[in-house]
């Protein structure tokens, strides 16, 4: 039986009737993008690097919004915690970037736990507003707590990713590290999605009442899902800080929320591939439109609208239509 909220439910691919063409196609596209990035110049590396960081962020957000069916407009708060945490620990206190990344992830997880416990008792629009407020509060703190964040002046001198004597000194090395972490993040999300916990989250997305009736601890699982999304967001924020070497409040502002939602819905919410596709498309499209100069944003938005009109379930949903799964 299908729930009325099938948009947020995952699409399970059956491979029993033949080759998993969608997976093969997506893997081939992924290999092409990566090969393209490593054979191209610094500009492409930068664009693909940002796309990969956003893909990681959206993979976490997808867990909370896509798989668990909850709304969060405030994940940028955890990206800010990750970014500023890594910046402060590495630039001011000499921590190894890898250690700083892990420590800030742990800190973000604890914050998500503390904040999420009361917040996730809310539902629907109220939850959306509460999480949005969380993002806004963090943004204001990052602007005004200048002794720690340096406000709009930004934080510079953040070292590249690395540990011990091994540092990703060049942009391509940094991209390689980001892509490895992204791959790990996606594999972890895929494993979690198909685990007992993941199936419970998907049941919550379908109906919290029904999930509760089945014995699923709804509040606890929602909280865990929120913490998982926060861990991903924190890692993305840290990676951004190390990749660019500079952060300022604008990086983690409401634009990040809009950008990540666009990626999530355009790529296909509730799917593993969706956030990856969305991040790549939304990152590359504006660059393709650069030649339009003053009309760049208009061109970009027209194409986005076109995609959403003709692929309302995102590009991943479109692939489902073009390459339907085979039943065994």
């Amino acid at each position: 039986m299908r729930s009325s909220r099938t948009m947020t439910l995952p699409v399970t691919t059956s491979t029993s009737g033949g080759l998993p063409w969608r997976h093969i196609l997506l893997a081939a596209l992924g290999v092409l993008v990566v090969a393209f990035a490593f054979s191209a110049n610094g500009y492409v590396v930068t664009v693909i690097g940002f796309a990969a960081i956003y893909a990681l962020f959206c993979t976490g957000l997808n867990f909370f919004m896509g798989f668990t069916g909850q709304a969060s407009f405030g994940q940028n708060a955890f990206a800010a915690l990750g970014g500023y945490g890594s910046a402060i620990l590495t630039a001011d206190y000499g921590f190894e970037p890898a250690i700083a990344l892990i420590l800030t992830m742990a800190f973000s997880g604890v914050v998500a736990l503390v904040v999420g416990y009361p917040t996730l008792r809310l539902r629907g629009h109220y939850l959306a507003m509460a999480t949005f407020a969380l993002g806004l509060i963090t943004y204001e703190i990052s602007i005004n707590w200048t002794d720690v964040t340096q406000g709009y002046m930004g934080y510079s001198g953040i070292p590249p990713l690395g540990i011990g004597p091994y540092y990703a000194d060049t942009p391509k090395q940094q991209l390689a590290v980001i892509l490895i972490l992204l791959a790990l993040g996606v594999l972890a999300a895929a494993a979690l999605k198909n685990s007992r916990f993941g199936r419970a989250c998907r049941a919550i997305a379908g109906s919290e009442l029904a999930a509760g009736a089945l014995g699923i601890p709804v509040a606890r699982y929602k909280l865990v899902s929120f913490v998982i999304a926060a861990l991903y967001a924190s890692a993305a924020g840290s990676l951004f800080a190390h990749f660019v070497g500079f952060i300022s409040p604008e990086v983690f502002g409401t634009a990040m929320v809009v950008q990540s939602f666009t990626m999530l819905y355009l790529g296909g919410i509730g799917t593993i591939a969706g956030p990856l596709i969305g991040a790549v498309v939304v990152s590359l499209l504006p660059e393709l439109m650069r030649g339009l100069k003053d009309y760049q944003t208009i061109g970009y938005l027209v194409i986005l609208l076109g995609i959403l009109i003709y692929a309302p379930k995102g590009v991943a949903g479109l692939l489902d239509r073009l390459l339907p799964k085979r039943e065994g």
């Binding site: 610094g42 930068t46 709009y152 002046m153 930004g154 660019v244 500079f246 952060i247 604008e250 990086v251």
Partner: peptide
């Protein structure tokens, strides 16, 4: 700032500019 990084990289890698005369967005230049 993020868009500034992309813009600078594009001008360095694709356009191969030889000098920058950039605007007043301090964080972007930083």
């Amino acid at each position: 700032p993020q868009q500034a990084v992309v813009a600078y990289q594009k001008m360095m890698a694709n356009d191969q500019v030889q000098i920058f005369a950039s605007g007043c967005v301090s964080a972007g230049n930083f």
